[in-house]
Write a protein that binds this DNA or RNA. Sequence first.
DNA 1: CTTAAAAATTTTAAGCTTGAAATAAATATG
DNA 2: CATATTTATTTCAAGCTTAAAATTTTTAAG
Lengths: 158, 158
Amino acid sequence: MNLELETAPVADLDAKQRLRIWIRLLKLSRRIESEIRERLRVEFSTTLPRFDVLAALYRKGEGMKMSELSEALMVSNGNVTGIIERLVQDGQVVRIPVEGDRRAMQVRLTEDGRKSFAMMAEVHEGWVNSMLGSLDDEDAARLLALLGDVSINGRKVT
Amino acid sequence: MNLELETAPVADLDAKQRLRIWIRLLKLSRRIESEIRERLRVEFSTTLPRFDVLAALYRKGEGMKMSELSEALMVSNGNVTGIIERLVQDGQVVRIPVEGDRRAMQVRLTEDGRKSFAMMAEVHEGWVNSMLGSLDDEDAARLLALLGDVSINGRKVT
DNA sequence: CTTAAAAATTTTAAGCTTGAAATAAATATG
DNA sequence: CATATTTATTTCAAGCTTAAAATTTTTAAG
């Protein structure tokens, strides 16, 4: 009883602090994200979801199935369907029937898609680097480590 | 010249590290965010944008104008219009003409909206607290501080 | 083989989000 | 006062996102 009376307020303070972390985390990532979306739109007439799909495909020369994409990007199947549709229209990506399974589709970058992503990725890295420029190397390392330590539902972020 | 040849690779390493921070930050906040969206939907049949609007209004008993809301939440005007529409339908919020300015609208919580938000906010705090439970108090404090130090375009996050 | 269950994907309906265009009202300028 | 600009908000079109339902094909079980 005594214990409860003493620890409850402390635990509550912790909860408030963790809530503040979450709010700050959200604010920061939204700021960066909206800056990136804006620049992708203005400079390259594209969107973050498209960029994310291209990034996932870039590392897999052989391409990925729709379900692998939605798994990797942690978005719904239906979502991927729509994004790929538009990327196909733009000629950045092709759908190839998977042999031996007539349900599945392999998605692969076109030559255009590959070149265009490589170029954007380099510029994108510069944006992020300059947006996080206020962190010196030491703080950057500490932040990276702290973020990597967090686990949600027992699963590490990384 | 020599200088450039020597520093370029170092700067590049830094850029890669900052990119990793951004990727980790994004992954973490998306994980937390989607968990919260899911729970808001399942437990309270509501959405994060609605919750955010209620949170902003909760602190302002006198209500807020549409433009103040979109400013505070960093979303577009048109976006707020739609969300408020649905909150009005749900009876959580009312629109009151601003006297002396027939263009403007004051948005205020109803009694229902106030009670319902207070309840949800408490539960929500618990969710966040438990999701960030893997951080001990010390790491939590360090993370909070590091996040607060970042500034984008010369503006602090907080 | 036949049927049932599982898997890969698409479709659908609803809501969120944005930038740009449209409205309407208030304010400033000549 | 008349006109121009600014301000507050809504409307619109396009795209993103999700969960749930529907389709099609594969695999498993009897």
